[in-house]
């Protein structure tokens, strides 16, 4: 039996300090007011304790200045709390651009983690300190929640869609990883550890081996295995859109709207291709892969598409900000400046 009493959690992420400060501020503020109320209650109960059975109290019914004071003061305090809390939320929800992308898949009752370098872990997550990590989350069955108390952050993990969590560990150590959304029988067993390591140690850990190659190379394998490569040629000639340069670009779909080709869009386009048909292409050509490709392979495919660079012979976006020629070379996938419905036919054509 553990007899030690713990009152304060580890604080090991870039946001933990400010959340601790906020929490302590709230405690001090609220405790002051609560103790004030308690003292006043006890004072009234003793000072005005009934002395004779037949006496009544003072009959004042109202005092407007007091009433206004205790409506306005709490309101102003609350607005302060709201603004501070909202500001921190923005920090917690918005990952830095240079975050290392990782994937985690929740499943009754385990966490499956995939590193971009190809390592797979179960209920363990190794990360370097001092680097922001962005984890794209999804679930194979019910709703889970990815919770690392020492990093003061959590995010629900939903089946059928992607959510995202990010953090930057600041202190090496071994921290709890919990599932905090009830997910069935062994909910309390869906726990693991996050190992925050010095960058050098992390590099060493990485080299211990990724037997299957990097995540994107695994994706390439699936890209051929599922027959994607048969139609998605890299030459604008196939019946299907060219996937080069797709990631995070605006795509015009058949309704005329633009969507950003983020992880969620690509996942949806793999599993339910007819949901959003790229402008200029026919529906019902690509089979529905829903239920056929497990989430971890979807993740690898996305990673592969993400890694698909510009077509040979075309340049990466140049430093002077000009739009490289490769953008917009096919219907539907527009360049970064695309704004209107006609944007799909710009470029080389």
């Amino acid at each position: 039996m553990s007899t030690s009493l713990q009152f304060w959690p580890d604080s090991a992420s870039s946001v933990a300090g400010e959340i601790n400060l906020f929490y302590i501020t709230m405690i001090v503020l609220c405790a002051t007011i609560a103790i004030g109320i308690a003292i006043f209650l006890i004072y009234c109960a003793i000072r005005y304790h009934r002395k004779r059975e037949n006496e009544m109290g003072d009959q004042t019914r109202n005092y407007i200045p007091a009433e206004v004071t205790w409506i306005v003061t709490p309101f102003l305090l609350f607005m302060g709390m709201f603004m501070w809390g909202a500001k921190m939320y923005m920090d917690i929800e918005r990952p830095p651009d240079d975050a290392i992308p990782m994937y985690a898949i929740g499943k009754q009752w385990m966490w499956k983690i995939q590193h971009p370098e190809g390592q797979r872990e179960i209920n363990e997550l190794h990360i370097p300190v001092g680097r922001p990590i962005k984890i794209t989350l999804t679930s194979e069955d019910v709703i889970h929640s990815f919770f690392v108390p020492a990093f003061r952050t959590k995010q629900d993990v939903l089946p059928g869609r992607y959510t995202m969590i990010w953090f930057e560990a600041t202190k090496p150590g071994k921290y709890h990883l919990f599932c905090s959304q009830y997910c069935g029988n062994k909910h309390s067993g869906m726990i693991g550890y996050v190992y925050a390591m010095q960058p050098a140690d992390y590099q060493a850990w990485l080299t211990q081996g990724a037997p299957e190659g990097s995540l994107s190379s695994q994706g390439e394998k699936y890209f051929h295995q599922y027959g994607c490569a048969n139609c998605h040629h890299f030459d604008n000639q196939g019946r299907c859109p060219d996937l080069r340069n797709l990631y995070m670009r605006p795509v015009q779909i058949s309704t005329g709207d633009y969507v950003t080709a983020d992880d969620s869009y690509i996942r949806e386009s793999i599993l339910d291709p007819n949901a959003k048909i790229v402008y200029g292409f026919q529906p019902n050509i690509m089979p529905n892969f829903s239920g056929l490709i497990p989430e971890d392979q979807v993740v690898a495919l996305i990673s592969y598409i993400k890694a698909l660079g510009p077509a040979p012979g075309n340049q990466m976006p140049s430093s002077n900000g000009a739009v490289p020629k490769s953008f917009g070379t096919q219907p539907g996938i527009a360049g970064p400046n695309a704004t209107s419905g006609s944007g799909s036919h710009r470029g080389q054509r």
């Binding site: 400010e18 929490y23 709230m26 609220c30 501070w84 809390g85 921190m88 917690i92």
Partner: peptide, 21 residues
């Protein structure tokens, strides 16, 4: 009062992320 005030903790977005659930 204690229950209500801890509700303020939970309504604060940044803090709720940690103490939620």
């Amino acid at each position: 009062t204690i229950g209500g005030m801890t509700g303020l903790f939970l309504a604060a977005l940044g803090l709720d992320v940690h103490v939620h659930d």
